[in-house]
Design a protein around this nucleic acid. Structure first.
Lengths: 215, 215
DNA sequence: ACCCGTGTTAATCAATCGATTTAATTAATC
DNA sequence: GATTAATTAAATCGATTGATTAACACGGGT
């Protein structure tokens, strides 16, 4: 389940699990150490303070995630023509590492989804600092792959919707079918990735101003 | 800004503001009462305990929201043919009250977005209890408006993406343009509603299995 | 006038929080 | 094998938490 031995990783695993279950703000450092089964002073020794613990929980998984995203992006850019990668290829490079994360570390995926909408200012700063560069890289790819006549605000809005679809999938994925009366087994892995790419690509490229009577 | 006088509403307004700023779990009852400028025992007097305060903050705005949603849904169903309302009309009835909420009570809108992905089990229960019925009503409308050959899991997945796009818009709307290098004024009101409906309708009706090489 | 219910205030409870200190234990180095 | 550094354990600090209590103000109804 966790990530190898060492007291440090034992603590980080416990923190990841509890953070996902109760929310970062709803978890005390003491409860993390109790869950990990180690002494109550080890968090301070290994991570300095509470913020250091949270930061390390995130950094441990976000850094490989960002690397994988940039690798995939470089790959699709290498294979693409001079116009840059297609919309589907760009979205695939952005989503695929998250879909893998959902399989390998579902607790962390839920935590990641929560943090995207977290209100605590300190958490938000930490979060944007971790992801800002990569998100901007992909935003440029998206811009190049979208029709040039699309306005800036429109592209920003639609990109925002794409992020929302992605975030709720991370945060709530296992509850996805809860509201349906029949219980469906939600797709995983490759199938989920395809669903996300198809949905977002269609939404991003939808023709504008086709329907007026929505209210 | 608030909702009329009365100590009760003064407390609820302060709670709404602080909850949106720092997250429900990051706000103490004492800080709410200090922000409201009232005595430290009035929360217990008016709302029983902390959970009662949270519940009332939500109920005060969610009940009118649900009523407005059902009214709009009844209206579009009345105007629709025997096949039920169109996809765009159904989505419009679902989104319009939220777009209004974003204008009139932006703090509560942010709070609502957070709660959709909140991890605290008690909060999640409270939340699903408030919205479950209405969401299921609209899920049925969506099902009727979508192509009958779409599979159940696929419809559930795409509905989930729609909810995600909506939730992030609520939670993060003012930060929408933050990641763009140029600063755009994000759309409001009618324009935002049209953006959401167009994007989601296109995503929901996208043809399946058109692209295989997404990874 | 009297009482009573509503609203408010100040004071305080035990529990828990993040953080720190001191001591005991283990591992590594010379 | 002695010395030193790294790690773990146990106990405790002041501050803050949710909750509760008792006392006080005040207005309307009988």
């Amino acid at each position: 389940m966790g990530s190898g031995g060492g007291t440090k990783n034992v603590i980080l695993d416990a923190a990841e699990r509890l953070f996902a279950e109760r929310g970062v703000q709803g978890v005390s450092v003491r409860s993390v150490l109790a869950e990990a089964g180690v002494n109550a002073a080890l968090a301070h020794y290994h991570f300095g303070d509470r913020t250091g613990l949270i930061r390390e929980v995130l950094r441990r998984r976000v850094e490989p995630l960002n690397e994988k995203r940039l690798e995939l992006l470089a790959a699709v850019e290498r294979e693409a023509g001079p116009g840059g990668p297609t919309l589907e290829a760009g979205l695939g490079a952005f989503f695929a590492p998250l879909v893998d994360l959902l399989d390998e570390h579902p607790d962390f995926a839920r935590l990641l989804g929560q943090l995207h909408v977290a209100a605590d200012p300190a958490l938000r700063d930490l979060f944007f600092h971790l992801f800002g560069d990569v998100v901007r890289r992909f935003a440029d790819v998206l811009k190049a792959a979208l029709p040039p006549e699309m306005s800036g605000p429109q592209r920003v809005s639609r990109t925002h919707f794409v992020l929302g679809a992605m975030i709720l999938t991370l945060a709530n994925y296992d509850d996805m079918a809860l509201m349906a009366r029949r219980r469906f087994k939600p797709p995983r892995g490759e199938a989920l990735l395809r669903e996300m790419v198809v949905f977002c690509a269609a939404g991003l490229t939808a023709p504008v101003a086709q329907n007026e009577g929505t209210r």
